[in-house]
Simulated assay, not measured.
Amino acid sequence: MIRRPLLALLPPLALAACTAPTGQAGPAPMSEKPANMREAGLQRVVGKTAAQLAALFGPADLDGREGQARKLQFVGPACVLDAYLIAEKTGAEPVVTYIDARLPSGDDIDRASCIASLSRRDAAP
């Protein structure tokens, strides 16, 4: 017979079994784009290399690493776009697998609108 206090431990133990131990790499990159990266307007960025992003937006305002991902940040007057690039295979050139967009205030903004705004930033007088 299982006592009630022990039943309370089952959900946290089950969750702990699903997480990777500290220091180990997370799951391998997905070969198919996540559903939220298939939105209209995102195809101009998702799957692109750093050089292709620079051709579209100009040089990145921030270029850094977060784990195995490379983060390129592009800042415009209307929004900030973070593009995360990961090599899909060992030795392959990293490509954008995830993007995030926000207003300069930090509030969320539609990613496709931000991409459109940033692609026009160098064309402005």
Rank of each mutant, 00 (worst) to 15 (best):
M1F: 11
M1K: 09
I2A: 05
R3Y: 06
R3F: 09
R4D: 14
R4Y: 11
P5T: 05
L6W: 15
L7R: 10
L9S: 09
L10A: 08
L10Y: 00
L10M: 07
P11Y: 04
P11F: 05
P11Q: 06
P11R: 04
P12L: 02
L15K: 01
L15P: 03
A17F: 15
A17S: 11
C18K: 02
P21H: 01
T22Y: 11
G23F: 03
G23W: 05
Q24E: 15
Q24Y: 14
A25P: 06
G26P: 03
G26I: 02
G26L: 09
P27K: 11
A28Q: 12
P29E: 04
M30Q: 12
M30W: 12
S31G: 10
S31P: 07
E32A: 14
A35K: 13
A35C: 03
A35H: 08
M37Y: 01
R38L: 10
R38Y: 00
E39F: 10
E39W: 06
A40V: 09
A40M: 12
A40S: 14
G41S: 12
Q43E: 12
Q43Y: 02
Q43R: 15
V45E: 02
V45C: 06
V46F: 02
V46L: 05
V46S: 07
G47W: 02
G47N: 05
K48L: 03
K48S: 10
K48V: 04
A51S: 10
Q52E: 15
L53P: 10
L53K: 09
L53Q: 02
A54Y: 09
A54I: 08
A54D: 13
A55P: 02
L56V: 00
L56K: 10
F57G: 00
P59L: 15
P59T: 13
D61Y: 09
L62N: 15
L62R: 14
L62H: 15
G64I: 03
R65F: 07
R65Y: 11
Q68G: 15
Q68L: 11
A69Y: 06
A69S: 11
A69G: 02
R70L: 07
L72H: 08
L72Y: 04
Q73G: 11
Q73C: 08
F74C: 04
V75D: 13
V75N: 11
P77Q: 15
A78C: 08
C79Y: 00
C79E: 03
V80F: 07
L81H: 00
D82T: 01
Y84N: 05
Y84L: 09
L85N: 01
I86M: 10
I86A: 05
A87L: 07
A87V: 07
A87G: 12
E88S: 12
G91F: 14
G91C: 13
G91S: 13
A92N: 04
A92Q: 11
E93K: 12
E93N: 08
P94D: 02
V95R: 06
V96A: 03
V96P: 01
V96N: 00
T97P: 03
Y98Q: 13
I99G: 03
A101G: 09
L103P: 04
D108S: 15
D108T: 12
D110W: 07
R111D: 10
A112K: 02
S113I: 10
S113D: 15
S113V: 10
I115L: 09
I115T: 15
A116E: 13
A116Q: 11
S117I: 05
S117T: 09
S117V: 03
S117A: 14
S119D: 10
R121E: 08
R121A: 07
D122N: 13
P125V: 05
